[in-house]
Write a protein that binds this DNA or RNA. Sequence first.
DNA 1: ACTATAACCAAACAATCGTTTGCTTTTATG
DNA 2: CATAAAAGCAAACGATTGTTTGGTTATAGT
Lengths: 203, 203
Amino acid sequence: MPTLATHKPQANNRREIVLEIAAGFFVRKGFNGTSIRDIAKEAGMLPGSLYYHFPSKEALLVAVFEEGVQRISAAAEAALAACQGNAWERLQAACEAHLVTLLEGSDFASVIVRVLPQDVPGAAEELISLRNDYEKTFIALVDALPLPAGTDRSLFRLMLIGALNHVPLWYRPGRETPSNLARQIVANLRFAQDNTKTEGKRT
Amino acid sequence: MPTLATHKPQANNRREIVLEIAAGFFVRKGFNGTSIRDIAKEAGMLPGSLYYHFPSKEALLVAVFEEGVQRISAAAEAALAACQGNAWERLQAACEAHLVTLLEGSDFASVIVRVLPQDVPGAAEELISLRNDYEKTFIALVDALPLPAGTDRSLFRLMLIGALNHVPLWYRPGRETPSNLARQIVANLRFAQDNTKTEGKRT
DNA sequence: ACTATAACCAAACAATCGTTTGCTTTTATG
DNA sequence: CATAAAAGCAAACGATTGTTTGGTTATAGT
């Protein structure tokens, strides 16, 4: 069979620009607080033109979300690849990468924390699935910790993620660095577990 | 002086019903995801009728927010009044009340966690102020803790609040009780601080 | 040069949004 | 009963929403 329609006139230049602008709006205004016209206007395009790149507003959010998960995952895995320490040090490295990406990285990662799946009914399950994929890394990291028997590792992980993802709500640049904050957060959870007497917090 | 216009035909029955319905929508759909018509419909009223009770949608949200702060504050202070223990036990009591109110109390308190001030531009400062009033309680509780010198108590408190307010995003009734979760969350932060060697996490 | 696709414009669509206005019903008090 | 305020209805206002449709320009391969 001959080469049928092997054209490729150009790359999607504007598509990535639109994604970046959309990420900014979604982070600052939320999903329902952002209009297609907001994004199009900042991109120097007309509202309808966005529908060449994305079939719907929800699909645009999903694309931003996917990019965010990919970026923060890449940051965490890169940090882990460069860390040869023990389980606590590896967890700390991942948390540093996580927080640095949230606070100083692009807006893509922040969308993951800002936009709730229930805000996007048509794609809620997909967003949850994407987030779960990323958090699997933390499940493994927490599982590797030398925690006292009886410790609820699931709760421990959710505590940590809750504390980390809460930082963007109060963080102000100039005081502590994101890395320092992550280190302190992990440290505050670390020593607590070292001398616990396994006294029954569960039966 | 004679009694001039001392009428009071009735109390604001419907007003509180509207508030409760609004709280439910704000929690589940967010502020921008909730329409006046949604609330009015569930209240069995017409959209315009809400404007007799509240001058605007934002004012309605503020009213819900205020009620939420009052309820969760009352729960925390009641728990503290009934607790004669040490600083850690008092913190635990407040956290239990906080989490129980968030997970099992009315929707009013959940609105505080769900709706971000930036979603309501015209009342953002007021919402922040209301939240800060409540969190002052936790500032005092954390200040009273016997933490090792050099510990950033502000970060410690923000970690705790972050972990607590994150629970509604993953909590599923039937497993652990809210009280149990709060106790474990505090416990996970407690022992960490007991044997810290004051090794410089800050200079 | 011809053609097919990419990329976007221009303009509108129906639906929904928060809100306003004028009128009616209800309710408690004198 | 009379009255005045409370509470709500009915209906619309202009603005904004996500989206569609058809036409236009740009670009690259044959």
